[in-house]
């Protein structure tokens, strides 16, 4: 069963784009239907994408829609993979969680929330996971600075040293 044809037949307009690159199929899905699509991919005979490998966020700045969430599904029965992608606006990005279909998505979605600021609605535990709870901003966004500090070498030792905080006893 061809996953792309099956998805297009089932969901019609909700399938926004299909790309293929080096044997990897990317299906861009309407964000509102992602849970249904995942459910369909998992439960349909002939597709059986039973394993969620990975969920990741992408920041397409300066494009709009700015954010992407990519779901990497894998079928142990058919031995093939599929990438579903959801595109989200830069302003208050939100998409429904797929933890109901794939429990493995739980921490991945928390990570995307933490690092990209994409909210997953109906998620059971939407907290920051990697950064401290009181952190400002979402580090993996393209407009978030890397946080580079000037490196102290012998030629600029004194200049940097002036501003370097040193711990006390």
């Amino acid at each position: 069963m061809n996953p792309v044809e099956a998805l297009q037949a089932e969901f019609g307009d909700a399938i926004q784009a299909v790309e293929e690159f080096r044997g990897e199929i990317t299906v861009t899905v309407d964000g509102a239907r992602i849970v249904d699509v995942c459910q369909y991919c998992r439960d349909t005979e002939g597709l059986q994408y039973n394993f969620l490998s990975d969920v990741t966020g992408i920041d397409y700045l300066p494009q709009e829609p700015r954010f992407g969430v990519a779901y990497h599904l894998y079928s142990m029965y058919q031995n093939r993979s599929l990438r579903l992608k959801v595109l989200l606006p830069g302003d208050e990005p939100a998409v429904s969680t797929v933890t109901g279909v794939y429990p493995a998505a739980n921490w991945f979605e928390r990570e995307i929330f933490d690092l990209f600021g994409v909210t997953f609605t109906n998620h059971p535990d939407m907290r920051r996971i990697l950064m401290p709870a009181d952190w400002d901003g979402h580090p993996l966004r393209k407009d978030y600075p890397l946080g580079y500090e000037t490196v102290q070498f012998s030629f600029n030792f004194d200049e940097v040293d002036k501003f370097k905080p040193y711990a006390k006893e």
Partner: peptide, 12 residues
């Protein structure tokens, strides 16, 4: 050299 790492533990 980034946002997450303390640049030298002598700051702490």
């Amino acid at each position: 050299n980034n946002y997450a790492i303390v640049q030298g533990v002598d700051e702490i």
